[in-house]
Design a protein around this nucleic acid. Structure first.
Lengths: 335, 335
DNA sequence: GGGACGCGAGAGAGCGCTCTCTTGACAGGG
DNA sequence: CCCTGTCAAGAGAGCGCTCTCTCGCGTCCC
């Protein structure tokens, strides 16, 4: 730790022959500085390799120019093979880069980890907090909002807390998928639902229920948790309980992928005997056997929009409570 | 931004009836504080909900208690469906959580983004920098090391810069894979190599070359870039140039996955006609048709070890220049 | 030609914390 | 009994920056 002292504003000021305040003005882009002086300062900054000390700046401005993105650690595991996790990060990162702010990533695993997130975010060490893929009804977003700390979550928060959110239109996506199945003559349409403690799981199931109800078709439901393992189990259960099913809508591509294999093992042909539709459009979907018809969600855009909303909120603007992003049915060979 | 003023050390000191210095001692766990006083301070901290202002602390300690993880943005795309990206983040995050430090994630996409990373890291806004999945010979790690800023990279850096790194033992992994193919009677073993501007691509190819040379077998090589698209193209090229091949070692599971499909389309049975082995052991590998035999690399552990090395370096310890992590051949049905 | 005004630059206070130095109290030895 | 050593707690000086306030100078108008 015995590194050469970094130049300070004072040093730059001395070199440029001006006051510290003037250097500060130039560095922060104030317009009230005469051109020759601005140039002299700019030169001194370059010569000395001056970089502002962010801690000192934060201390006085009360801003940190960084935002936290909080995800349950499970997200990196459950979705490990899915673009949700990297996609959101990418979207968030792009927008923050444009706004020249830093991304502090917090994966909350253990209860201790969650407590750490709570301390860090309520301690105002960041200018805003983004929550992704919440499970259940976490009270933290609501707490932060009440403290006046800008917060945006992905997915309508459970428990009806007044926190702004961005979500994809699950119901419209599912409706399009079911309609496509009906249009191609399917009448015994089952679903492998997602976990019922996550909004995405809940919404996709309720979308399925309304869609089949509207068409006067029966509900054939098995519940999974978005993973492949759960998809296999759910598919087996459906085949046992409803051997005459002719289509399956899985609430995630991972579960759809597993269903494809389970159907093959059971001697059912896809799509001849059973049509399969997934949700997410992960990259693997184009490479399954047969390639998977699925509902694409704009996941990078989700990250971007969340971030844009957060930055507007942090800038003092008032923002919409909810933003809904469209989905799109991608037709491949499985249905 | 008109939120209630947060309590400062001063406020806690006043409430506990001691000096600011004593509160600081208690908060930072100094032992030279009498028990009754320590208790009074602890109570005051709790009552006021005091949380230290990190910016103020950083200003005087010259530490930030945060480390940056730098990845090329392409990593989130190329490997989108692979666990490399989330796996490394998870490993890094786990170790940082244990050390109570924050993770600042920087995805460098554009040249402007790279410049931003350079400014931020050389500006000493973090206590150390981790680089993952470098392409080509980035000069930044070397620059940082020269500035005395702790740096650890994943994968032996190209260009022979004296920067400590952690890597998986690619050569041993490939050797095990090729030996397995030879042991099962394969003699015309081709490879789909990875990009030759990344260490992983280079090492896996050189491992292949030595292994086949040692066995007196010919080299049959096509080069891809780790993605599925490139895997299909390379597989088609190999089939054209060497129609008699009886095995393929792909330098990534994504390319192996594409090769599987291309082989099927070409009428080759796997593993009867052509055995296929991949590298990475992504989750999808167990779900390909047939399930993929592959070389598993401990990717979460890679992130953990990088972080541990970095923390030791930041603590002033001297560390090994290179750490090598073992790989393991996972035998499934494709070979 | 003199006073008011506008604008660019400097002075200086402080953001909240840590840490060295000093002080004060008490115990023990000569 | 005084001096010294020890240890706990306080005083106070900054860390590097921003921002308000002040000052000085040139300009314009009457």
């Amino acid at each position: 730790m015995t590194t050469a002292q970094r130049p300070t504003l004072e040093a730059v000021a001395a070199r440029a022959g001006v006051s510290r305040a003037t250097v500060s003005r130039v560095v922060n882009g104030s317009t009230t500085v005469a051109e020759p002086i601005r140039e002299a300062v700019t030169r001194a900054v370059a010569e000395l390799g001056y970089v502002p000390n962010l801690a000192a700046r934060s201390l006085v401005t009360q801003r940190t120019d960084s935002v936290a993105l909080v995800m349950p650690e499970a997200a990196t595991r459950v979705f490990s093979d899915d673009q949700v996790f990297p996609g959101i990060i990418r979207g968030v990162s792009q927008e923050l880069e444009a706004a020249d702010k830093q991304l502090v990533l917090m994966l909350a695993g253990s209860p201790a980890g969650h407590h750490r997130v709570e301390r860090y975010t309520t301690g105002r060490h960041v200018d805003g907090v983004l929550f992704a893929s919440l499970h259940g009804a976490d009270p933290l977003p609501g707490t932060l909002a009440r403290l006046g700390i800008p917060v945006v979550v992905s997915g309508r928060p459970l428990g009806d807390v007044p926190v702004p959110y961005v979500d994809v239109d699950h119901v419209a996506g599912v409706t399009a998928a079911i309609r496509h199945l009906i249009d191609s003559g399917r009448r015994r349409i089952a679903t492998i639902a997602g976990p019922q403690d996550m909004v995405a799981g809940i919404e996709r199931l309720s979308g399925y229920r309304s869609a089949v109800a509207d068409a006067g078709l029966p509900e054939l439901i098995a519940v999974g948790d978005f993973t492949r393992e759960s998809g296999s189990a759910a598919m087996r259960q459906l085949l046992t309980e409803h051997p005459d099913l002719d289509a399956v809508f899985a609430a995630s591509d991972l579960m759809a992928h597993a269903a494809l294999r389970t159907l093959r093992e059971a001697g059912r042909r896809v799509p001849e005997d059973v049509a399969v539709v997934g949700f997410d459009d992960i990259e693997t979907a184009a490479y399954t056997e047969p390639p998977l018809t699925t509902v694409r969600q704009p996941i990078v855009e989700l990250g971007r929009r969340m971030t844009r909303q957060l930055l507007r909120l942090a800038a003092g603007e008032t923002i919409e409570q909810a933003v809904m992003l469209p989905t799109e049915l991608i037709r491949r060979a499985s249905a």
